[in-house]
Simulated assay, not measured.
Amino acid sequence: MATLDSGVPAARLDSLTSLRFFAAAVVVLVHLSAELDLPHLIDAAVSLGYVGVAFFFTLSGFVLAWTARPADTARRFYGRRIARIWPAHAAVTALTIPVIYAGGAEPVWGALPFVLTCTHVWIPSPAWHYAFNGPSWSLAAEAFFYALFPVLIRVARRQQQRLRVLAAFTVTMMVVSALAVVAVAPDTTWGFLLYLNPLYRLGEFGLGMLLALAIRRGRRAPWPTWLPATGGACAYLALVLFAPHDSEGEIPRILTDSVLLPFFLAIIAAAASADIRGDRTPLRARSLVALGDRSFALYLIHVPLIKAVHAGVAGQDLGGAAHLALAIGLLGASIVAAHLLYAGVERPAEQRLRRRLAS
């Protein structure tokens, strides 16, 4: 029986577990591109891979709402979330320290308590946002979502007859906030206000929650998963080719996330509906589900691994082909390292913590 992000058995939604691997993989690809000198075509193709984070936030809201139990208490919920994410996060944070020194830098020691408590994204300093392990900034956003979840799910359940109204309100707030920031703030601050800021990213999490409640009430997506996936891939390509760039020469992340979010919701709805109907789809393949189970570990471990290898080859005159081979090798090594982290730390520590917190 597969287990989704909440730790609650949900064998009928294996496809969502598989989708987590693809979201993690595109994040790995964008970081490989940032560290290695890859061919321009590949750099361009993976340059928007950070959208995997938006997919994670949306899927997280869906899964937590889908598996939430009415009799559950906030204390039990918080305990499960701590057991789920903290052991692997703490272990990888410790592993990053020698990697940082190997790269010739100094850890931002003042940020360590905030990193370990998943609060560092609230500190107004880019050095602290990405301190120790860069991807952990999203855990700080998730921790904020978790803190609000018991209240959010209670409100959403009471308003189940008005899910469309809640969804429209959420989208409106996101659009108004984004337009206000774009109109008033310089584009150099958009990254924090509209990408890192948990208050803004709460909208993605909330839409995932509302989608889960709609499906629990009997709504089903009539379209196959491949249809929104293909549409999302086409929209992604259009953004790479035609989207405007900001003053730093990058496509604004708020634009990418906003364009692709509807496709993410449609993909999640289609995959969940197919699993509920019992459809046989490639996403339910055992190997993909296993990779999805290790996606959180992959998301955490890949940057320290990439940076460690990059520090070892820095200064060497490697050609483009060698960098491409190195990138492929690092992708495979990241998956192997993710399995070791999952099997050696994440799962056993979560099980022990759950038993201890339950007692």
Rank of each mutant, 00 (worst) to 15 (best):
A238P: 05
L194H: 03
G203N: 09
P282R: 06
Q351Y: 04
A297E: 02
I328C: 13
L29Y: 03
V26G: 03
L152E: 07
V336H: 04
D317A: 15
L4W: 09
E248F: 07
L265E: 04
P70N: 04
A127P: 02
H310R: 13
L199F: 15
L227V: 14
R347E: 13
V345S: 00
V182S: 03
R158G: 14
P244A: 12
P124Q: 13
A143R: 00
Y50V: 07
L16S: 06
A235Y: 08
T225S: 10
L36A: 11
P135A: 10
L300R: 01
V46S: 02
S60K: 01
V259N: 07
S136W: 03
G218I: 14
L202F: 14
L16K: 03
W122F: 15
D14V: 04
W190S: 00
V8C: 09
L112K: 01
L213S: 01
A24C: 13
F21E: 01
V336C: 05
A180L: 14
R347A: 11
H129V: 02
I301R: 00
A24N: 05
F55Q: 00
R154W: 14
R355V: 14
T281Y: 05
V27N: 03
W66T: 08
R352I: 13
L213I: 14
V240T: 15
A88P: 01
P222N: 00
L237M: 15
T67M: 13
M1I: 06
R216L: 13
R69W: 04
F22L: 07
G79M: 06
L41W: 15
F169T: 10
R81S: 02
S6N: 08
L139S: 03
V51P: 00
I82M: 11
A178D: 06
R20Q: 13
T119R: 08
P113Y: 12
I335M: 04
L163F: 06
R158D: 06
V26I: 15
L32M: 08
I301Y: 04
A74C: 12
Q161K: 12
S273T: 03
A102H: 03
Q161I: 00
R347M: 14
H120R: 01
A2I: 09
F114N: 03
A140C: 07
L199R: 07
F205S: 08
R12Y: 05
D279S: 06
E204L: 13
L48Y: 01
A141W: 02
A337V: 12
I251E: 01
L340W: 14
A272D: 03
V309K: 04
F55K: 01
P244I: 00
R12D: 06
A269Q: 02
P304Q: 11
G104C: 05
R355A: 15
G329K: 11
L207K: 08
A25V: 00
P150N: 09
E35S: 15
S258E: 05
W137F: 08
G231D: 06
V99S: 00
R284I: 12
P87Q: 08
A44F: 07
Q160R: 13
A102Q: 03
G103M: 09
